[in-house]
Design a binder for these strands. Structure first.
Ligand SMILES: [Mg+2]
Length: 264
DNA sequence: GCGACAG
DNA sequence: ATCTTGTCGC
């Protein structure tokens, strides 16, 4: 199993997180965020190697969701080699570089981000959403499917129900029931955001599914790109599926992007 | 010292 | 996250 990092690397990562956590602030959340960015990735099996193993690759997808039009207005993707193992509490060191590669390819300005993981509801107050928000210097929210640390009650089964998530006595987020009868999401501020603002946004973006649209579309999209050779499935293909054109008469101007190491 | 432990 | 066929239930 994977321990491809030294204890010093782990110690450096811990220190990096503790340092970043000092820079957290809940201020500067936009009043009415319209364009919400989301990103996710899928690990691909390599030549004789299992998906997610050292040297294998992952494909990341970043999308921009327009809350006003209720649709995805842009999608981008990128492939990168996996260079860090999965270690609970160090997820950002594994995923952030890959997610960033896809995010950098977006041209639409994003107001706030939602990421698939925790924000400050983290042992050192610096989960994936916090780390990425700080690297991007933009407001961000973490929407995790399960709890990493802290304690909270089970929210009522109705959609919209919430239960405070506390870690060491501090409010670090909410367990939010985004879909009736389904397990709650663990929502926390990533950067420039309060727990309440984070929960409100995620609930508002979770239209008919458990996951908010930005990360749900990114999750679905990277699964489509997983394992396909560069050229067979293009971003253009995904745009048509995940980004239905209301007018059906216009072109975006960049519809030939291929998801390779450099290509887009 | 013993469990818990995002994706 | 990924490995994987059929199967149980609305
Ligand atoms: Mg994910």
């Amino acid at each position: 199993m994977g321990r491809w990092i030294s204890t010093r690397a782990v110690r450096r990562a811990f220190n990096r997180q503790r340092h970043l956590a000092l820079a957290f602030t809940a201020a500067d959340w936009p009043p009415h965020p319209r364009f919400v960015g989301g990103a996710d990735l899928a690990f691909e099996p390599g030549a004789g190697q299992r998906a997610g193993s050292p040297g294998s690759r992952a494909v990341a997808v970043a999308v921009v969701w327009d809350r006003q039009q209720r649709r995805c207005v842009e999608i981008a993707a990128a492939r990168r080699r996996v260079r860090f193992p999965y270690v609970p509490g160090l997820l950002s060191f594994r995923e952030a570089p890959i997610l960033l590669a896809a995010i950098r390819r977006l041209q639409t300005p994003v107001d706030v981000w939602i990421f698939d993981g925790h924000g400050i509801s983290h042992p050192r107050g610096c989960g994936l959403a916090t780390h990425l928000g700080m690297l991007l210097n933009q407001p961000s929210v973490g929407a995790a499917k399960s709890r990493l640390c802290g304690v909270c009650a089970t929210p009522p089964s109705r959609r919209g129900a919430c239960a405070p998530l506390r870690y060491q006595g501090r409010l670090v987020g909410f367990a939010v029931r985004t879909e009736a009868g389904q397990p709650p999401l663990y929502v926390s501020p990533g950067f420039r955001c309060t727990p309440r603002q984070a929960a409100k946004l995620v609930l508002a973006c979770a239209l008919r599914h458990r996951l908010p649209e930005p990360t749900r579309l990114a999750d679905w999209s990277c699964a489509q790109l997983r394992g396909v050779g560069a050229g067979s499935v293009t971003v253009d293909t995904l745009q048509r599926l995940v980004r239905p054109d209301p007018s059906r008469h216009s072109f975006t101007g960049r519809e030939r992007e291929v998801v390779s190491r450099h290509g887009g």
